[in-house]
Amino acid sequence: MIEVKNLYKRFGDLEVLKNINCKVNESEVVCVIGPSGSGKSTLLRCLNMLEEMTSGDVVIDGDHINDKKVNINEIRAEVGMVFQQFNLFPHKTVIENIMLAPQKVRRISREDARKRAVALLDKVGLSDKENNYPSQLSGGQQQRVAIARALAMEPKVMLFDEPTSALDPELVGEVLEVMKQLALEGMTMVVVTHEMGFAKEVGDRVLFMDEGKIEEEGDPEQIFSKPKSERTQEFLRKVL
């Protein structure tokens, strides 16, 4: 589903991603962990070209996203993204947030968009918040709306960048629950997270990033119980 080959990313003189190679298979949940500044967000943002790669190749569902001939908007429509800060549209109600892109990008009718939004709000447990504005919701509710908004495009892949890091501890669970449900339904997901419990339980594979490289990758069981790399051991000692 996603294939990253020899990916480099530089911000001026700062090399943030150094030769990243990885693969995400269909229906797989890959969790990306690692210390702050290791390039996790940058990697995720390169996957939908929110950040332009310096060199390398990213293939999503057969499309080389860096290819001049591909329409990046079409690729992004297939790749949902959930941000740490939710980034809901504050001037639109919850349901309008969800209905906008399917209408404008997928060109589905307003009615169909509404039906889809209603179903998704039900799925994330926020049916009663349809007509509220984002500012009237708790952080956990806002993030669930953001997930519904991304899902409304019926993406093939979902990218999550620390979706629970901006939340009060008691609100983390409701968001992880929705993500877990999504994983069970077979969604392909890349999740940057500090929630090691989630990575262990839901992740099919864990990538540990350090200083712009994938230092170690493997199944969660192995990474968390017997990490091979010293760096991974050190990181896990600090966070667990």
Partner: peptide, 17 residues
């Protein structure tokens, strides 16, 4: 906020939209 443009673009809306 920059995140607003990014959220829109990540949904597949083009710059103008």
């Amino acid at each position: 906020e920059k995140g607003q443009m990014e959220a829109g673009r990540s949904l597949g809306l083009d710059h103008g939209q």
